[in-house]
């Protein structure tokens, strides 16, 4: 290991005196990795517990959808977008942007759409 790396103590030591169980004992090398429950699974388990709906929990404190009309902005420039291109599904502000929209390769169109989670996802 290089001197400057050691000096900066960049690498975490594998043995810690203050631990009762060391990392290498808990997760031995070569053993299949522990599969941690993703948040979705954790929440699924919570829902299965059938808690009373009056009690606040992680799921029910979530915000509802907005009541305000959806703001439409130009996907490229960020200006207000009165128009919508039916071919690419992009919103655009004016004729100049429209020209740009039509000249964009499909990959970029999809990336712009993905920004507002409107891209076509092929599974």
């Amino acid at each position: 290991m290089e001197a400057e790396v050691i000096k900066a103590e960049l690498v975490l030591p594998t043995h810690m005196s203050f631990k009762r169980i060391q990392m290498y004992e808990k997760y031995p090398k070569g053993q299949s990795k522990v599969r941690w429950k993703q948040l979705k699974q954790i929440l699924q388990a919570e829902i299965c517990q059938n808690y009373s709906p009056d009690e606040p929990n992680y799921v029910n404190i979530e915000s509802p959808p907005s009541m305000q009309p959806c703001k439409r902005i130009c996907d490229i420039t960020g200006f207000e977008a009165p128009y919508h291109d039916p071919r690419t599904n992009l919103r655009y502000a004016n004729a100049d942007v429209f020209k740009l929209v039509r000249s964009l390769p499909n990959e970029y169109v999809q990336r712009y759409l993905a920004l507002r989670k409107a891209a076509v996802v092929l599974r």
Partner: peptide, 12 residues
């Protein structure tokens, strides 16, 4: 909703 998250913003 500008980034496709359908929830209320700070003020609401």
């Amino acid at each position: 909703n500008l980034v496709g998250i359908d929830q209320v913003g700070l003020d609401e």
